[in-house]
Design a protein around this nucleic acid. Structure first.
Lengths: 264, 264
DNA sequence: AACTTGGTTTCATTATTTGGAACCTCAAAA
DNA sequence: TTTTGAGGTTCCAAATAATGAAACCAAGTT
């Protein structure tokens, strides 16, 4: 995919290990890797040293390292909208009683950073960090619709357009048409495009300058409701999105100190 | 700190950005960085490209990127004990009614990967990902005590021995003595060494081969209880720790497929 | 004992990183 | 409007690190 020198390659390896979703042997990685034996080996060594990967000497397997969890903690509190959005999401969830998602874009994919489920308790990590396709989810399309041209082109070029259901938009042209409509009316709809029976409405979260920060959505199932009912919530969702946007923007860093932070 | 070529340097930069705990300007980073302008610049570029950092063009600031959240999700489910330990922690928490911590070692620091609080609901990310000192926490000492010599030496050399309270163990010798006792009796005690009024007992989580996987602890406050009461739970904690250890070990990967996983 | 599979190390070659310095750029001051 | 300067960005020859074919090693297998 990428090509930022050594850093890019290291990230590729990292991603590859993560993609397996289970501890992997060297040989398995080698097989699905474009790097030659020795190179891959050294990358794994370095990444393991750095704690970005962890190595199980008993089983001789690699998996994503705990250092990532620590760093992600940082990313979560700083760079995600989640901490700001939390109370707003709570309110939205309480008021609507429906499933609420907060998502942001991560390399042209939808990254869910928070969620409220009508029923289950929070169960954070299980949702936060999950990814989904941008071209066929409400939050995804809501964000795409308000991207500037460059970014949009890049993002679209990275969509798979896999047909999840028979309503999935599977071509760039159709998607672009839908995005235009979304831009007009200010919110996106997902009409069973990703999962059958699942519909949703989503609004983008924008800065005052129009930059896309994320999106929130309300999801329902066709069994219990239709779009007419769901659309009733749009103004409420829009309001929440705007609120998150302006709070995010207002959150100027509090004129920080110069000394480095230091744990332990 | 480290020196694994380019990868190590990139990680340093990443860590540095994360350490600020807020979005940082280039100039601020440059100041506290050992890299020259141009080098630092290129690292930031590459890392940003890769989504490991995110750049806010309005404010011209860097912060840890969302890709980390995605990767950490992977790390969390795979490499941490959390998913295995969850039900066991629940049980322990329910039965004791006290605060329960699950921690693992990350570059000689204690990384909390899960927690049960007697009162509050889960609030995951706020605890998961937090770090603490190893030499003056129950979980930390429980893990250190069962490290092999090499690792222990390395870990000890990386402790700050900062005096948090007047009971903090502030020298290597004292710590080593305590670790020896912990090794004998099989559990660690934190007697207000990190926070005044906070005491805890902790047991290491080990593989059958004796490798340290993590530790769990039960925490109490001196207002409500003393060590005699707390120690009553030790067998229960030990049992939970052993259970987590053996389940972690049993969790052999389910004879995976060879094809690569693919999101979106 | 010879063979195989999976992992690690070597080393001359090659490509990347490096960092001082020059160069932009934008905004505030003159 | 011009000047100034701090904050960013780009250049390029020298220094360094990555590369990968091949050799090597360690454990199991036949």
């Amino acid at each position: 995919m990428a090509g930022d020198g050594t850093i890019g390659k290291a990230c590729d390896v990292l991603e590859q290990v993560a993609a397996f979703g289970r501890p992997v042997r060297f040989a398995e990685l080698l097989e699905s890797s474009s790097f030659p034996k020795a190179s891959l080996y050294r990358f794994l060594q370095s990444l393991t040293n750095q704690g970005m990967l962890s190595y199980d000497p008993d089983r001789q397997t690699y998996s994503p390292g705990l250092r990532l969890v620590r760093l992600a903690h940082s990313a979560w509190t700083q760079s995600s909208l989640a901490p700001i959005a939390r109370p707003i999401l709570d309110g939205l969830s309480l008021e609507t009683g429906e499933t609420v998602h907060l998502a942001q874009l991560d390399s042209s994919q939808v990254l869910y950073v928070d969620k409220r489920n009508a029923k289950n308790p929070v169960e954070m990590y299980s949702e936060a960090g999950k990814v989904g396709p941008a071209y066929c989810t409400g939050v995804g399309k809501a964000m795409l619709a308000f991207l500037d041209d460059d970014r949009l082109d890049k993002a679209i070029s990275q969509q798979s357009f896999h047909r999840f259901t028979d309503k999935t938009l599977t071509s760039e042209a159709v998607l672009r048409a839908d995005l235009a409509r979304i831009r007009e009316r200010g919110f996106a709809m997902d009409d069973e495009e990703h999962e059958p029976g699942i519909i949703c409405v989503a609004c983008p979260i924008l800065t005052s300058g129009g930059r896309v920060l994320g999106a929130i959505s309300i999801t329902g199932s066709t069994q219990r409701m239709d779009f007419d009912q769901l659309k009733k919530w749009v103004p409420r969702v829009r309001r929440s999105a705007d609120q998150i946007g302006s709070e995010a923007e207002a959150w100027r860093f509090p004129e920080g100190r110069k000394d480095r932070m230091q744990a332990s």
